[in-house]
Design a protein around this nucleic acid. Structure first.
Lengths: 216, 216, 216, 216
DNA sequence: CATTAAACGAGACGGTACGTCGTGTCTTGCG
DNA sequence: CGCAAGACACGACGTACCGTCTCGTTTAATG
């Protein structure tokens, strides 16, 4: 339960916002290593106590600052139109576009750095950042498996993780242009949906977009 | 060409090794943030000059230390037995086992942290660490596509990236037990090989291991 | 006017004192070259910032430390009993005794070293350390010249400087025992008071202490 | 005894000179604290070993460099014309002129700094630098006392020390213009020669230059 | 209202790490 | 063996950041 009725002067929302803004400014212009508590305090026109009153250290401060920005224009969560392949494609497209905006990429990267050298932070971050996507994917894929959209014996957890992992790796480590990213994402999804293995027998299956023919 | 005839006293290999060893010791026992130039110098019985003479800062020092350890017992590269699925499974298994050893995981994690906040470092690291795996995967998959082991229209680059991304995400962000990791890797590979999509028509295909039946 | 209402936490007098004490301790036990900012900070249980916040470098820090100790037990200033020769003798005696205490000599020597290689520091030091003595000597000698105690045509500035210079040279460069120093000081004063030149003519003057006869 | 026939390659005089010149250059342009062994070695185009082979540390190196320059144009030693007052005046004048040349003052000052924080160095320096002057003064004054030029009961050691101390103090600590220095030196010598004390009785003595009358 | 307790800005504080520089020693290969 | 070059261990330098701690001042909610 929150302590609703604390005595004394209440914390100022303006101070709070000024701090988060200052952090985002520094992150975007200079990256995580440029952020220091002193610098943030000065930039926000705030005492250091007002930082430490709210956040235990630099990592959670940056985390909240990024999540705050994130919350205002967060990347697409997995939609549910009934067509699971279309939904996944839409989702991947959304991620590619979101992280194609440099500001978004910079903030998220900073978040990754912030949590990089503490296992607990890393886990917490994964929960906050990837958690919703993971949940949505799991739910959607389970439903798809139950509804006959995808194979019933699909290892939904594994596929979910593969999608998130592949997406994040691309975003953080190999990002170049959005178009290239979209191309890779489409390639991944195609492979995943129809499989890469050739049919052992001659039984052919229907052709798949894009231009999917089954010849091996 | 190496400069063969450098003047003055040549750099000592013993000093070099002592430094790298000291870095690895600290990394394994305490993680990246415990590494400091002073600490390393003291632990290695070496002057700080001998560090800065060789490495510009902490990041490349840690990078070399880890790569050095890595070179001595590096994780399995993709084998080539003729059966691409078996090879991939073996490779994933090898990664799971390699990173299941805490020392290996700790060192690699440190490397990720070291390169986290500089784009150039990150790229260099990816090249050194993931590069050989990527190359091997690309070659193997292209050969498999050409040889009819996998579909000719497979987007090999995309699949390669998906595999590496999924693998690294699991290793760095969601590692728990080796067994769990192996299970997820197998699930990913199954999905990728045979596809997750149900045949739209009644044409069934051959059953796949493990227990793979195609019912949807 | 002092800035009365400085904002922020005021500087701690305890910190200030701890630092000065630590400096004096090191000076007395080891001399100027043993003083290092790190060492002082550690010995005083203080952060280096607290040193650099107050003093720009080692020299003014040592200067203040010594002047502080000096202020607590400073050497005798020139007294004024009406008998200028007795006063000067008393003053020289006081200096000899003061610097005969090893601690006082060590601290003052350190001060000389601290200011040795900067002209500004040297001047400032001379002002602070020798200034009061110079002022007192000038005043006293001028009064004595006006009152007929000493020759009216005495170059008071020159005599003052000779006394201070001779005294400091003995103290810093040729100090052995206090007794020897006192003997030299007396010899200097005798010579200065009555002159070393023989009367050209036979006119003799009254005998002077100690044992002063005018035979040449 | 010098080792005349050392085996192996003899030390190069050119190297020696290049080093001393480099030291003097740095001393004159930047002062003692600007001198570092590395800097000297580089400036002289010489290996550091060639420094340490010849001098144990910075202090004696600087000492020799300065003494070397000193030897080429050293300040006047006390002359002996038969008139002790004229000789002393000439000597003081010579010192004032010598140290009035900034280069000479700078080098000597450096020497003082070099020996400042070690008692042994200080003593050695005093011996080398002031020693010859002291000896000459002592000899001359003793002769003068014996010959009836000055009072037989003069404390020659004390007077010698007073002259050297007063001179050095002026030179090192209070140097402004040469003219001012000369004026002070003359004042000191006048006071010392004829004494500052008024004759208690009416017996007057002969007038002294400059303009010396005995009125009190 | 007046009280009061917390928030607030400023900035001092003890620590620790940084990257540079200086000292004096050691180790190459060349002359 | 002398010598130039330069690596080496050590340790001081002055700066920056961290997280804590006073200061004096402001600001609501409460009594």
């Amino acid at each position: 339960m929150e302590e609703v009725n604390r005595r004394g002067r209440p914390r100022s929302q303006a101070t709070h916002d000024a701090i988060l803004d200052a952090v985002c400014d520094i992150l975007v212009t200079g990256g995580y290593s440029e952020v220091s508590m002193d610098r943030v305090a000065t930039a926000a026109g705030v005492g250091k106590h007002s930082l430490y009153r709210r956040w235990a250290s630099k990592a959670p401060l940056v985390a909240e600052a990024v999540m705050n920005a994130y919350g205002q224009q967060s990347p697409l969560l997995l939609p549910d139109t009934g067509d699971v392949e279309a939904d996944l494609r839409e989702w991947l497209l959304g991620q590619a576009r979101y992280f194609g905006v440099e500001r978004n990429a910079a903030l998220s990267r900073a978040l990754a750095v912030a949590s990089a050298d503490d296992a607990g932070d890393r886990e917490a971050l994964d929960l906050q950042l990837a958690g919703p996507h993971r949940d949505a994917l799991l739910r959607r894929l389970h439903a798809a498996a139950a509804g006959g959209e995808i194979r019933a014996d699909t290892d939904v957890e594994a596929v979910t993780e593969a999608l998130i992992g592949a997406m994040l790796y691309r975003i953080f480590n190999r990002a170049k242009t959005v178009d290239e990213t979209i191309k890779v994402f489409n390639g991944i999804l195609d492979a995943l949906m129809r499989g890469v293995r050739c049919a052992e027998n001659v039984e052919s299956r229907g052709a798949h977009r894009p231009g999917g023919d089954d010849r091996c």
